[in-house]
Amino acid sequence: MNMQEPFERAVEQHGATVLRVCRAVLGPEADADDAWSETFLAAMRAWPELPEDTNVEAWLVRVAKRKAIDLARARSRQAIPTDEPPEGPAPADHPDAEGLWDAVAALPERQRLAVAYHYLGGLPHAETAELIGSNAEAVRRATADGIKGLRRTYHTDTSPKGAPR
């Protein structure tokens, strides 16, 4: 059976999460808004054919990651063909990970991009380096620093709520 839920509900329930994902990759500016719109437009197009038992949030987060990475590529004016990025570890598919998205978004620019492209977008460091105008080694370091930062802020923020580490 295909989806029969009014699409409005998907926007209501998951709009904020999708925005967090987009901002984690693209920063809090207009690009993230564009990625949000692209995500929901694509989702709305596909909605009637979606199997009814789809985990809508996880599906939307996947679409959002792809749209955000595509937009980041376009922004860097590199005509890299947009083949599907491989699915990464994707901790944010977990519904309780909202705090994690915020923590990613709060990282310094370079670390945020390095973490977002590598872990959320599944890009190798070399490709991330091309996107943000750097080299693979610097990106690897920025990623490691970003993860270190996340361990600190994400743990600090969530441990009182008993979130899993």
């Binding site: 901002r23 920063g27 809090p28 705090g99 915020d102 978004a105 709060a106 600190r152 802020t153 600090t156 923020d157 969530t158 441990s159 009182p160 709520k161």
Partner: peptide, 20 residues
């Protein structure tokens, strides 16, 4: 900017930032 604003809600819960 917005990212920074997100931290305060939980920030006051984690008062042990002086650990490191």
């Amino acid at each position: 900017m917005t990212a920074d604003q997100y931290t305060p809600p939980d920030g006051h819960l984690g008062g042990h930032t002086d650990d490191q």
